[in-house]
Simulated assay, not measured.
Amino acid sequence: MKNYIGIIIIVCSLVSCQSTSQSTIVSVNGSHIDVNNTLYTIKGICYHPVPKGSPNNRSWATLTQDLALMTEAGINTIRVYEPIDDIKVLDEIDQAGIKIIIGFGYNQGGKNDIKSGTFIDYVNKYKSHNAILMWELGNEYNYHPEWFGDDIKNWYKEMNDAAALIHSEDSNHPTTTAHGDLPDALALEMSPNIDVWGMNVYRWDNPEPIFKQWKSVSSKPMYLSETGGDSYMKITKAGYEQGENQKAQADAAKNILNKVFDNQDICSGVTLFSFTDGWWKAGNNDVQDIGGYAPNSTGIPYDGAPNEEYWGIVDIDRKKKLVFDVLKEKYSSLSKTKK
């Protein structure tokens, strides 16, 4: 009898482990995203946790703390700029009830990147994991034709071919991209295999015009893959004083999020930039520097300057900024039926 009980326990354990790794089905339903046939609204954040002093190496040392803060804020989706090749990290994110938009870069040294084709190995390895929401190809590459022989058409072809390969291997998760602002006719024509269009949109504190612009050119789902403002004012402007200014960031986020969720008939949500300040971006990685550069960044509220190391909803030590409560209030106020 003891042997039978042992076998039962082992079998049950195996079934339990398998069930935690079974993917949900993410699909496109007209202009919206469904998860298991239920409308999914992206209440998200961009996430690239680099500790003090690091040159740009992610660390998962604060993952448990970060996920607790995200859960408190009502975040249901994180967007990462490179794949997470650690099952324990993916499992912990899943256990927190959060899904991931996995980003693939074009050239990442032949590891999980588009240029080498190794991205598809990652897709096949993790396509059954419950945490996966979408596969993202590229981030604002339309701003960098110089990376593709000075002809952006080369990128659109690579992106579309990569999306087709994903479709052939994984029918349960859409393909997406993070395009710099509204894709033009060329981008749309050359990229029929992109299922959901993410757009990095910095139009001051009012992205609303892009929703009508999108509706006029496509019936596919879209979401804002990056938007928001930083907490440093390079100059005094629009009533906000020069220097560190969390109120400017909070006010901008509030206005932006209101516009996003006022347009849910078109927009599937947002991954606000960003979870934590990134001290690696602009200078000495051991201190928080003023400055930095981002392409097409004149639309940053309210000074037109990105100040790349001041974008977090929490600072590098995970202390909440004013914008954290703005995000929490907005995300938590959305219908409980919309994950």
Rank of each mutant, 00 (worst) to 15 (best):
Y4Q: 05
Y4M: 12
I5F: 15
G6S: 15
C12L: 15
V15Q: 13
Q18Y: 10
Q18A: 14
T20C: 10
S21Y: 00
V28Y: 10
G30A: 10
S31I: 13
I33R: 00
N36H: 04
Y47H: 11
P49V: 14
V50H: 10
K52Y: 02
N57V: 15
R58C: 05
A61R: 03
T62R: 13
T64S: 14
A73C: 13
G74Q: 03
T77F: 04
I78S: 09
I78P: 04
R79N: 08
E82S: 06
P83L: 13
I87H: 01
D91V: 00
D91E: 08
E92C: 02
D94I: 01
D94C: 03
I98F: 09
I101C: 12
G105K: 01
D113K: 06
K115V: 11
F119S: 01
I120A: 02
D121E: 09
A131S: 15
L133N: 03
W135I: 06
E136F: 06
L137W: 00
E140I: 08
E140S: 11
E140A: 12
K157F: 04
A164Y: 10
I166E: 01
H167C: 14
D170S: 00
P174Y: 09
G180H: 03
P183G: 14
P183S: 14
D184T: 08
L186C: 12
L188V: 01
E189P: 02
N193P: 07
W197P: 01
R203L: 11
R203F: 03
N206Y: 01
P207G: 05
E208T: 07
I210H: 00
K212A: 08
K212V: 12
K212I: 08
S216I: 11
S216R: 07
S218F: 08
G228A: 08
Y232M: 01
M233P: 00
I235P: 08
K237D: 12
G239W: 02
E241I: 12
N245L: 05
N245F: 01
A252F: 11
I256P: 00
V260T: 10
V260P: 00
F261H: 11
D262T: 07
D262W: 03
I266M: 04
I266W: 02
S274V: 13
F275K: 04
F275P: 09
W280Y: 15
Q288S: 11
N296H: 10
G299Y: 01
I300D: 03
Y302L: 06
Y310V: 02
Y310T: 05
K321I: 10
L322V: 14
V326N: 02
L327W: 07
Y331E: 10
